[in-house]
């Protein structure tokens, strides 16, 4: 039997909104560690890794490891039926091919349950080694989303370049070119407004903006985003999920031919 209960159900709604455009079907792995997922987009260019630790839930029971294959668009449809203040419970019994989502209003005067069919998914799990990154940028997530959105009206790709001067986001297209430079700024009133750049080596990498824009769907989850880069390695774009875990997106770089 597997059961989790999350009082702040809106977090789960936001998590689904952050991954459903990137991945169609995915296996959720349930274990004593927590509720997790690793899935690639259909072209094997981007990957999303989600971890919600068991300690972050108000109630978490997992008698044995369980993999639940779900269509994320359908799961998002069901979670959309939960109110933003609702408590969400996810339940699955051993040996059944369904999962139940239960939504309780804060005053307990409305209780809904939605049952969804599970599916068998052949998942390709990638082994991602721990890496020391040459440059790590922490910046306001809304600012990063704004930059990706603005640059996608100029071009299809973004060149991200980290130097001692700061981090430069550049795009080029038929109508012209754009450069946005963000400098380190740690002297802000609120820590969530800070931009911190840790650089061991200067790094320049090119990425498809379509994927970067898709990652920024996670912006409502966290005030800050962390972008980790090394030469010739996929970038990691990470959003923390309120003391419970993270969503990490990996994106393979474009290379000059």
């Amino acid at each position: 039997m597997f059961e989790l209960r999350l009082v702040q159900g809106s977090l789960l709604k936001k998590v689904l909104e952050s991954i459903k455009d990137l991945v169609n079907d995915a296996n959720f792995d349930c274990s004593s560690t927590g509720f997790s997922l690793q899935a690639m987009d259909s072209s094997h260019v981007a990957l999303v890794a989600l971890l919600l630790r068991s300690e972050g839930f108000e109630h978490y029971r997992c008698d044995r490891n369980l993999t639940m294959g779900m269509n994320l668009a359908n799961m998002a449809k069901m979670l959309k039926c939960a109110g933003n203040d609702d408590i969400i419970t996810i339940k699955a019994d051993d040996g059944t091919d369904t999962v139940t989502f239960m939504f309780e209003s804060p005053s307990q005067d409305k209780i809904s349950d939605f049952e969804m069919k599970l599916m068998d998914i052949d998942s390709e799990h990638l082994g991602i080694p721990e890496a020391e990154y040459e440059a790590i940028i922490r910046m306001p997530s809304a600012e990063f989303a704004r930059i990706c959105r603005d640059l996608s009206s100029i071009g299809d790709t973004v060149v991200i370049s980290v130097t001692k001067e700061g981090v430069r986001f550049s795009a080029r297209g038929d109508i012209g070119a754009a450069n946005i430079v963000c400098r380190q700024n740690a002297t802000v009133d609120k820590p969530e407004d800070a931009t911190i750049i840790e650089m061991q080596e200067p790094v320049t990498l090119t990425f498809a903006l379509r994927y970067m824009n898709s990652f920024t769907k996670a912006t409502p989850l966290a005030e800050q985003v962390t972008i980790s880069m090394s030469s010739d390695l996929p970038v990691v774009v990470e959003y923390k999920v309120a003391g419970m875990g993270y969503i990490r997106y990996y994106l393979a770089p474009k290379i000059e031919e």
Binding site: M40, S43, H44, V45, A46, L47, E124, H125, L126, G127, I128, P129, T157, T206, A208, L233, P234, Y250, A252, P253, K254, I255, E256, E257
Partner: peptide, 14 residues
């Protein structure tokens, strides 16, 4: 002109 690499070029399949 640039070409798109794939994640499987960097990470191994488990």
């Amino acid at each position: 002109c640039s070409s798109q690499t794939m994640l499987t070029e960097f990470f191994s399949m488990n």
